[in-house]
């Protein structure tokens, strides 16, 4: 079912990135970030929950948000590869956040015109959240790029490592294409120019070179992930799976 699959891809992106951010909780470089990263994580997990719930209802097989989040394995997860990349260091984490938000902000703005009422509802809330994520993560990209020698080297490393995952953001799977054709979701490829502009502005201020990727790494939408996702899911799902059918 195309709409179900397309919503699932979107929900998986949000849950996995939210989970990654939550891994920082209590270990951030400063107390302010111990508040800001969970904040962003909560935005993402909140969006994921609404999307899973909606997808489950459209599917009509009685699957709940938790069934979808906790009872699928890594081959069934459909998130893009960018969001599952490990936190590595604060530079990687902030750049990953910035790249994702720079994509999702125009996505949700366009989704305000969706033919689906739930999607419009999510878009109204998430577009504002993503504006904040762009600002917060973008400011860090600038501070790190134009900070110390070490911070500049680290953010350059992050660009080097993460840029190959950018193109996948703009790909639409077959399911997504169907949902796009029906006016339910925005056309991903249309958002490239906006993304490029957002990134160019921040990179100029961060004294970072405009990146070009030697190639594009894809696979998440087909369930071909990096090895790291299986570990994330094993941790996330362990309690839930150990007690089949239990209520929490």
């Amino acid at each position: 079912m195309a709409v179900f699959d397309a919503l699932l891809e979107l929900a998986d992106d949000h849950l996995i990135l939210g989970h990654r951010l939550s891994e920082w909780c209590g270990h951030a470089p400063m107390l302010e970030e111990d508040l800001a990263m969970p904040n962003m994580g909560l935005d993402l997990i909140g969006t994921a929950r609404t999307l899973y719930d909606h997808a489950g209802k459209l599917e009509g097989k009685g699957r709940s948000e938790d069934d979808l989040a906790y009872l699928r394995g890594e081959r069934e997860y459909r998130n893009c590869l960018l969001v599952e990349r490990p936190n590595e260091d604060f530079a990687h984490t902030m750049l990953r956040q910035f790249y994702f938000a720079a994509f999702m902000r125009p996505y949700w703005l366009a989704a305000l015109n969706s033919t689906d009422e739930v999607v419009r509802g999510v878009a109204g809330k998430a577009e504002k959240e993503m504006a904040y994520h762009i600002r917060h993560a973008g400011e860090w990209v600038i501070r790190l790029g134009d900070g110390t020698e070490e911070s500049a080297a680290r953010i350059r490393d992050a660009v080097e490592a993460l840029h190959i995952y950018v193109d996948e953001l703009f790909d639409s799977s077959d399911a997504a294409q169907e949902a796009e054709a029906a006016g339910l979701l925005p056309v991903r490829a249309d958002l490239r120019a906006t993304w490029d502009r957002t990134v160019a502005e921040v990179f100029a201020e961060a004294l970072l070179e405009q990146p070009t990727a030697a190639y594009a790494q894809r696979g998440g939408r087909q369930g071909i992930h990096n090895e790291t996702l299986g570990h994330l899911l094993a941790e996330m799902q362990v309690v839930h799976r150990a007690h089949p059918g239990a209520r929490w």
Partner: peptide, 11 residues
């Protein structure tokens, strides 16, 4: 946090 058994509890 990373092992919370439902999304509601995780949030």
């Amino acid at each position: 946090i990373t092992r919370a058994p439902s999304l509601r509890r995780k949030a």
